[in-house]
Nucleic acid binder design. Structure first.
Lengths: 155, 155
DNA sequence: GGCTTATAGTTAGCCGAACAACTAAAACGC
DNA sequence: GCGTTTTAGTTGTTCGGCTAACTATAAGCC
């Protein structure tokens, strides 16, 4: 057995002592809040990220969207299909590479931008509401640390 | 046009400047890591939390599980149905309240405990790997702050 | 050229998360 | 007692995330 005994105290209790559980709870709360704020736009959480990427990055391949959002191909295919069905996005085959589809935002998609920008600002505001500047920078630093740690595990 | 220009700097760029995006990315990485570690147990992310709650809390009502995990009733119903179908959990009607179902872990479910405990320790280890004690406590504090902020928004 | 490998995208199936609508039973209030 | 409200649980639907399997095309290699 290669498991140290004396450091696994709060592992099974779900008592909130572990960073993993905390990440889990924060993520759930945050996503739920995003979903509520997003309702007035008719979008579902995640779709706004696709649109935001298209707004700032212009027409691009699906694989570029996947890379930007660190998503995966099947999820992107379906997400874009739904955005296309709601008329927010258009898919046209590339002329130079017959494997790729170029995704671009439609008029209707562009029209959603002010609402989504406002929603996103509101989300950010509510997320860090009532915290001091020091606390906020501590949070940013912490999340950055977690992200790079988790990313290095991936590779 | 009613869009303020000068305050939407990192709003549309997805450049990682916002806490919200950081939460999003950390959560995705973390959940994906949990999923990979969990594969050898045959469980899906989330199911291990139900089992852990049952291990530490004993047989209980579904609504208690919902409360412990801050989940919701429909998700719990389906999650438990799947655990039941895989024989890890048993559901018996309460004798005192005919609305409630008592959920308890089976032998097979209990047998998973060492593996899940090990996986959870590993997840926690990988999550905070290479960080100093100071950084870790900063992270715990930050996540706690985010959680209480987001919780207060909910109510 | 022709064979192999890598890349772009799709489809199907599993899962959890969220919302709405529903059934059944308990608790409450008069 | 009886009607109203609350609570426990289920079902249906839509969504994102993930894996696996697949098609089609491009790129690399000999």
């Amino acid at each position: 057995m290669d498991m140290p005994e004396e450091e696994s105290k709060q592992v099974t209790g779900l008592d909130g002592g572990s960073v993993s559980h905390a990440i889990f709870r924060v993520a759930r709360l945050h996503k739920s809040l995003a979903g509520r704020l997003l309702r007035e736009t008719g979008l579902h959480p995640g779709q706004e990220l696709v649109l935001m990427t298209l707004w700032s990055g212009g027409p691009q391949r699906q694989v570029d969207l996947v890379a930007s959002l660190e998503s995966d191909a099947p999820t992107m295919t379906r997400s874009i299909s739904r955005l296309e069905k709601s008329g927010l996005v258009r898919r046209t085959p590339s002329l130079t590479d017959r494997r790729v589809m170029i995704v671009e935002v439609t008029e209707a998609g562009l029209a959603l931008r002010p609402k989504v920008d406002r929603m996103w600002s509101e989300l950010e505001r509510l997320t860090i509401e009532g915290l001091s500047e020091e606390q906020r920078s501590g949070i940013s630093a912490s999340l950055g640390l977690l992200e790079s740690t988790l990313e290095s595990v991936d590779r």
